[in-house]
Each structure stands twice: as C-alpha cells, then as structure tokens.
C-alpha cells in the first residue's frame, strides 16, 4: 500500500452502503428465478405434448381421471399455509416469540398438503396411472412430483427455522430466506394445478 501512504487522505472515506436486499434473501431469490424457469420448462413441455393429442381424448383413453375436487380442497390447505406464513413474518417483526405458533401452523398445513398428495398418488397408481402408462401419466408424476420435492425441501427448511426460533436464534434474514422459498412453493402450485388438473 505504498501508493496510499504517499498521498494524504483528502477525500472523506465513503461509507459502505447497506445492501438493498440481504444476501441470503437475494441468493434465494435468484434460485427461485431459476426454479420458475425450471417449472416453466415443464409446463411448456406439457402444453406442447397435450396439444399434440388435440382432437383425441385428453386424458387418453383408459387412463383414470385426476381427483380435481379433492385436490382443490387440498390446495386450499397449501394456500392457507402460505397466508399464515405472511402473518408469521409480521408477528416476528413485533415479537420473535409470537412467531412460533403461526410458523408451526404453517408447517402443519404444508405437511397436510404433502401427505394428502402422497395418498392421492397411491390411489392413482393402483388405478393404473403410472409414468410409463402414457405421456399424460408421465407428465402428471413429473410435474407434481417435482413440486412435491420442492415442498418437502421447503418444509425441512421451515422446520429448521422453527427449531432455531424455539432456541431464540432465528434472525429476520433467515426467516425471510426460508419463507421466500415457501412462498414460491405455494404460489407455483395454483399454476401447476391449472395446467395439470384442469
């Protein structure tokens, strides 16, 4: 740093600006953008294959129909879970202690959703809808399965956040990071439901 010591400090040292978005949240946001593109890829593929079957039956002949109504109810659980998580955020801002119960509620509702989806899968498999049975079945398990994997991952993150908060260690950035991912899981589901079930 010889050059620095040679010239006297004339200008005041500029302050380091606060980041517009905390690093953790920004990282997850970028990841979510990638995930949105991943699901868009799946949906596009599904749309194209579906359009090829135009004029014929969709779902194809001999394939079971999807449980549209039950899943709609189940989706409600997921949406409510997302809304509860919004309340968790505001509760956390006022008092981190008070955020624990809504957080737990959100986790339970999310788990109900994933569990019910699992039950539905078992039923559909026994009715003869498999990945190999048709492109229809393939896309159903592929799209809903990818969502389920993301949901499980996000639930694990939420449980981790709950564990931190019960120890009083949860920071707002951590909660923001984890909830951002859960919001993604919640908000992408209606689109998938619309595309796959309806």
């Amino acid at each position: 740093m010889s050059a620095e010591s040679a010239t006297p400090l004339t200008a005041p040292r500029p302050a380091k600006p606060k980041p517009a978005i905390p690093s953790g949240v920004l990282g997850v946001l970028i990841f979510i953008f990638t995930e949105i593109m991943f699901f868009s890829g799946l949906i596009s593929a599904h749309t194209i294959v579906k359009s090829q079957a135009a004029g014929q039956m969709w779902p194809p002949y001999g394939q079971p129909r999807l449980p549209v109504g039950e899943t709609a109810l189940n989706s409600l659980a997921l949406l409510v879970s997302g809304i509860v998580l919004v309340f968790t955020w505001f509760a956390f801002k006022r008092d981190p202690e008070r955020a624990r119960i809504p957080l737990l509620l959100s986790i339970v509702l999310g788990s109900v959703f994933v569990g019910f989806q699992g039950v539905e899968w078992v039923a559909l498999l026994s009715e003869g809808l498999t990945m190999q049975s048709s492109a229809y079945g393939g896309f159903f398990y592929l799209i809903v399965g990818s969502h389920a994997i993301h949901a499980v991952g996000a639930l694990i993150a939420l449980i981790w956040a709950y564990d931190r908060s019960s120890k009083g260690l949860l920071t707002s950035t951590q909660l923001g990071t984890v909830s951002a991912f859960w919001y993604f899981v919640v908000l992408v589901w209606p689109v998938l439901y619309w595309q796959v079930y309806l």
């Binding site: 194209i48 359009s51 090829q52 135009a54 004029g55």
Partner: peptide, 9 residues
C-alpha cells in the same frame, strides 16, 4: 395437420 400443436409451440 395439427394447428393446435403449432400454436402451442
């Protein structure tokens, strides 16, 4: 033959 397919693309 399938105009829908083209439009989907």
């Amino acid at each position: 033959s399938s105009d829908e397919n083209r439009q989907a693309f």
